[in-house]
Each structure stands twice: as structure tokens, then as C-alpha cells.
Design a binder for these strands. Structure first.
Lengths: 228, 228
DNA sequence: CACCGTAATTTTGAATTCATAATTAAGTCA
DNA sequence: TGACTTAATTATGAATTCAAAATTACGGTG
């Protein structure tokens, strides 16, 4: 019998590069404020400058990179001003995703979210921050997908990326972490009840608390590093 | 005395092209569903394919263009599915812009909006659809700017562009037009009162009515053109 | 004439090249 | 030594080139 065929449409080079560069930016390998080492990346990925530069243009329009005319591309900084801007927008979008999810989510999907939630609680119990973050994101993503709105998914993820950059941004004090877990209990509760209105408002509060936490941390950083 | 200097940072070629192409797409010169005539555009703008293709990548990430591997770029169609997706997102973002605008808008800015509103009413009286549309957009934009959130502005405008494409999309029946004007009366009223909550909910309703109107029109079109 | 397969042409994606701007290095002079 | 020029080097932006894929044109066959 015939073997499973390869996916028919191989991603174009520039598209692949957008994904790879996003990852490098998020995990901090390309540090905020640093210059994008064009030549180095070309060598690393074995491509010419053309597709790499195409990718950089796209990343710039997503706000992950800043293009300075004749001076190259720079990884954008996560500033307090940006955080204050992005989180409210993200909150509005997640709120919508919650409302829509309540309309469309299947019982099976709810069970998936519940399973993730339980796992996350375990990670919290173990104080395993990496696992907690990872599962946390999967929960938000599951709700987003249940909203059945690809445009919403795309918009949310673009903004999330900007905030994810530098995971260390989260100022996970013991108190904030506990509160976040409590918020997630409510999120699950309203999702199960398919109470869109309350889920939406909980998600907004959740985002706002996260914003406050990140801002606090940024201010601490600023003070520590001497307002660099 | 020295003359007024030129702006120091001339926009890069690709950035300029993004703007130009957006305009061509919105005003329908590049028709939905049609292939992007790469060579033609290069000649027209007097640039090589490199910056043009960079611009196309950016437009693709904004959803105005679809890149088919080895088959070139195509202007995306405005489908019913897309309309049903984009308007709710736009609604959520405009609602947020309304809320934030109520917190930040100055009296002078409110007067500007009121002036625009009055002009728009006159255009409505004259049944001047072009003027009406143009002023309408300026009102929404003024509120957006008053929100003092550049990220929100950018996100909103990107999605707006996708819906503006083909202005004929608006199914401006006499009844819908009247209703839209009524909605705008409320928008102005709540903005003046700086009642963020009510302004937000009015803006959502406004968007939803527009969505319904556009969908109706698309369905009519579909029936007329034989489900093409 | 319709259908299929093959060759010529065009288009696309990506590497390379090239002119120009920016940066670094070297040299000059107080 | 240190500020200031100027030359060498490097990096950037954009045009050009080139290989591969897709499309079109052509010709044979039933």
C-alpha cells in the first residue's frame, strides 16, 4: 500500500524563517534591544539574505523587531509603556474568546481544559514554573481554539508573542502565583457553566492582574539595572 | 534663513510599497480574487521585485494577500466567513477603544468629534455616501486615537483594512443607513458623557449591525452571481 | 476535433551582485 | 594624549541573476 504522503505544500523559506526567528526572540536567544545578526542567522539557517530580510519585515509589522533605516534590525524592548498598551488589548480579545468559546465549546473540549487545569494545579503544587507556564498557555490556547474564530486566534497570538518574549517577565511572587491559580479556578468554573459573560470578565481581570504583575517586575528591574 | 528641512528618515521602499499596495487593494484597483501582477507593479512603481515581494509578505501576514507557493500572490476575497470572524473582533477592539477614550479624551477632542458628527449628518441628509463613509471613518479613528493606545490603533486599523476593502460591501439600504445614524447619535452622546461602559456596548452593537448588513449584502451578491 | 504528452516560455523563489550609507580604523595636529 | 579628519572596511538596501516550478504553446494521435 502507498505510504503516507508528505504535506503537499512545503512552507516557503521566509515563512519558515518567521517561525524560527519568533522562537529565537521568545526564548531570548535574540535578546531584547540587541541587533539582529543578519549574516550570522543566514549562515545558521543556510539561507541567503533575501528570505531572511523578508521575514524581518514581517516580524517588524508584528512589533517583534524594529527596522532602523540603513542601520539594520533590532529586537524590540519590552517596555512598561508597551506592556500597559498590549495587555488591555489582549484582555479584550481573550474576553471575546471566552464568550465565543462558551457558545461553541464541546463537552469533550471542556474535559480537555479540565485535564490541563488539573495538571497545572499539580505543577503549581510542585512549584514547577516552567511546566506551569507551558500548561497555562495551552489552557488559554484551548479556549481560543474553542472560540472558532481564526482571526481572533491570529490576533491574540501575535500580541501574546510580544508579551511572551522574555518569559522571565512574569513576576511570579508566591502571592501573585496563588492569586493566578484562584483566577484559573474561576475561569474553569465559568467555562464549564458556559457562562460567557462572567468568563469574559474573569479573563479581563486575569489579564489586568498579569499586567500589574509584569509592570511591577519591570519597575524593579529598572531600579536594579539603573534605568538602563 | 534656512528652509524647512525634508523629513530626515525617508520611508524605506518596502514600507512605502506596503502603503501604496494597501490603497490599491482597498480602492479595488487590485480586485479581490485576482492575481497580484508583480511585474506590472514593479514597472508602475519603478522598483525591483525585491522590495515589492517584501511588501507582499507583510500584506500576507495582514490577510490582505494570499501567497500560494510557486503560484504567486493573490488578493484575498472578502468571504462571508471572514466577515463573520472579523467584525466581532473589531467590535471588541472598538469597544475597548471607546472605554479608554472616555478616560483620556479632552474636551477639545470631543468637540472635534462633534464637528465631524455634524458634518456626517449633513452628508446623510444629502445622501452623499462617499462623504458619509469618509467622515464616519474619521470619527471612529478620532475615538481610537483618544484611547491613547498605539497597539490598539494598529490592531484595529489592520482589521478595518480587511473590511474596508471593497467599500461597496456596505449594504446601505435606506433603513440600515438611518439606523446607523441613530447609533452614531448614541455614540456621540455617551462619548460626551464619558460613559465608557455604555459607549463600549453601543460600539459593539454598531459593529454587529454592520456585520449583519454586510453579510446580507454578500448573500445577495452570491445569489446574483450564481455562487461564484 | 478533442485529448494527451512534450517542448518553449514565463513566472516564481531565492542567491548573488552592486551602489550607497554607516561604522570602524588610521592618521594628523594641537 | 585626545579631539578631529579622512581613508578603509563593513553592513545595508535594492537590483540583478539564476535555477526550478508552473504555465502556455505546440504537435501528434485516436
Amino acid at each position: 500500500m502507498m505510504q503516507e504522503t508528505q504535506p503537499i505544500t512545503r512552507k516557503s523559506l521566509h515563512h519558515e524563517l518567521v517561525d524560527r526567528l519568533q522562537m529565537l526572540i521568545i526564548n531570548g536567544e535574540l535578546a531584547p534591544g540587541s541587533k539582529v545578526p543578519e549574516k550570522l542567522l543566514c549562515d545558521r539557517f543556510g539561507v541567503s539574505r533575501t528570505p531572511l530580510r523578508e521575514a524581518l519585515k514581517v516580524l517588524a509589522s508584528d512589533g517583534l523587531v524594529r527596522l532602523e533605516p540603513n542601520r539594520g534590525a533590532w529586537i524590540t524592548l519590552v517596555t512598561q509603556g508597551e506592556v500597559e498598551e498590549v495587555f488591555p488589548v489582549l484582555g479584550a480579545l481573550e474576553a471575546l474568546s471566552g464568550e465565543l468559546a462558551c457558545n461553541h465549546i464541546t463537552d469533550a473540549e471542556i474535559e480537555e481544559v479540565r485535564a490541563l487545569h488539573d495538571q497545572m494545579i499539580i505543577s503549581y503544587g510542585n512549584r514547577d514554573l516552567d511546566a506551569y507556564f507551558s500548561i497555562n498557555q495551552r489552557i488559554h490556547r484551548a479556549i481560543l481554539l474553542a472560540a472558532r474564530n481564526r482571526t481572533l486566534t491570529t490576533s491574540c497570538q501575535a500580541l501574546s508573542l510580544r508579551m511572551q518574549r522574555a518569559r522571565y517577565l512574569a513576576n511570579m511572587t508566591e502571592g501573585r502565583w496563588y492569586a493566578a491559580v484562584q483566577e484559573h479556578e474561576r475561569i474553569l468554573e465559568f467555562l464549564v457553566a458556559r457562562n460567557g459573560r462572567k468568563l469574559a470578565s474573569t479573563l479581563i481581570d486575569h489579564m489586568d492582574a498579569k499586567r500589574a504583575s509584569v509592570v511591577t517586575w519591570l519597575q524593579t528591574q529598572e531600579a536594579t539595572t539603573g534605568h538602563r
